[in-house]
Design a binder for these strands. Structure first.
Lengths: 246, 246
DNA sequence: AAAAATCGGTAGCCATGGCTACCGAAACGT
DNA sequence: ACGTTTCGGTAGCCATGGCTACCGATTTTT
């Protein structure tokens, strides 16, 4: 009798786990717009590999061949790029629900371009490229959704990179700042707006040094182009800023 | 009798045109791996809009909403980015078979990010996003191929942009050159290789000025890191180069 | 073959911006 | 409330690299 109760418990735990997993996945951009219940069915068809990692374990190693997209389910992981000299630079911090390897899965060159390392005890899911595009006989409805999601995700990544290239291509400090401020202004719709990043992060985004950036912002204030205090920026002479954009 | 002959002729001309179009499309990355004959069938289902343009006509205008991917069939077109100041910069030159708008079709923000202008008498094909992902009842086989192509195309674009960002992020001249030379070396497999671009283009790619680049290359030669003559470059001290990569 | 255009190398000038160092203010942790 | 950390501003030094100008070589045009 006790045994039966125990088994029921195990089964319940299993179900709870499954629903927890699909609930987590329903938050993930790859499964956007799909009900957790449906995700459960899909997983049977997608046959994902689930892997657990301890702290400092290597989840993916740059250069290794691969054919799967990764989803971080639990924990925290770092995406790291190593230069030939062995110098490491952090590229991204992954949190539960984040994808990795999404750019590379569908390109010809199927080797991890970066290394992913678990920062704490983590769990990741890998879905193979074939399962993702492959049409299983039944339930093609959600398959279509997942492919549309995939297309959207990669497109948005490309758009983001494109924007980044635009900023990096601008040579002068003032040009970068002007372009950035005007973009924020356009987004906010008001002449006064708040910067979405700290100075350090902004300098990093524009690929300039923080002190040099502050210096230039001060100059622009002196010249009556903008005014600012901490995160708050007000555009005074929009025309002049526009003339700086390259 | 004569009328019948005439009609036959017209029909033949139509067929010739169709096969010419599909022959052209079979060269296009979007239809890679699909037989021209099959492409003909597909076109019925994809319902592309075909448009003709005269020289200097606007094929697509930045900011305008859109939902279609473009294929240049005939002629030549420029992709142009206009800054707020009205300053124009060329982004790409399109030739027959080239796609445009491929990054944006599947992103949420569906507005042309750049302007496309015909440089000569041209013809372009537009295929709507829905038709591209939509599954028509029959012939899902090639539909799958076209979606896989689409995924590959966007992924590769993202990879390319990613690589570009990597180069642009390197701050020092020497770092950029070292990284570039090492990459060429890796690709070629030999210590001596030929540069795939002219100096002007390389300087442009690395986002530096041509004379400064030449100067730095000369210095690197003096220091015994590399040797070069025109397009031919030989790596002498690979280790030292590696240490420069940021 | 002459003229023009393109291409690559070199030199000198100097503006831009990176870097270190330091300071005060704010935010955070305990 | 206190110490600690993070954040932003400022200053001075000077290396990096942009820019113009010029030259010779090669290629293309006519």
């Amino acid at each position: 009798m006790e045994q039966i109760e125990q088994m029921k418990q195990i089964k319940q735990d299993g179900l709870k786990k499954l629903t927890e997993k699909s609930r987590l996945l329903s938050q993930c951009s790859l499964f956007q717009g799909i009900e957790p219940v449906v995700i459960n069915e899909m997983l049977n068809c997608l046959e994902p590999k689930s892997c657990r990692y301890k702290k400092n374990d290597t989840i993916a190693l740059a250069g290794e061949p691969f054919e799967s997209i990764g989803v971080l389910l639990k924990g925290e992981a770092l995406v790291i790029k190593e230069t030939a000299a062995g110098h490491r630079s952090m590229m991204a911090l992954l949190r539960p629900g984040d994808l990795f390897g999404e750019i590379v899965v569908f390109s010809k060159n199927s080797a991890w371009p970066a290394t992913v390392i678990a920062q704490e005890e983590s769990q990741a899911l890998f879905i193979s490229r074939r399962k993702l595009t492959g049409q299983c006989e039944q339930s093609c409805t959600w398959h279509r959704t997942i492919i549309e999601n995939m297309l959207r995700i990669i497109s948005e990544k490309a758009m983001m990179l494109n924007k980044k290239v635009e900023y990096l291509t601008i040579k002068s400090m003032r040009g970068k700042l002007s372009t950035f401020f005007l973009e924020q202004h356009r987004k906010a719709g008001t002449t006064t707006f708040r910067l979405p990043m700290k100075r350090n992060e902004l300098a990093d985004f524009l690929n300039v040094s923080r002190p040099s950036m502050s210096r230039e912002m001060a100059r622009m204030r002196e010249e009556g182009l903008i005014d600012f205090h901490l995160e708050t920026v007000r555009i005074i002479n929009a025309e002049a800023l526009r003339d700086m954009g390259e």
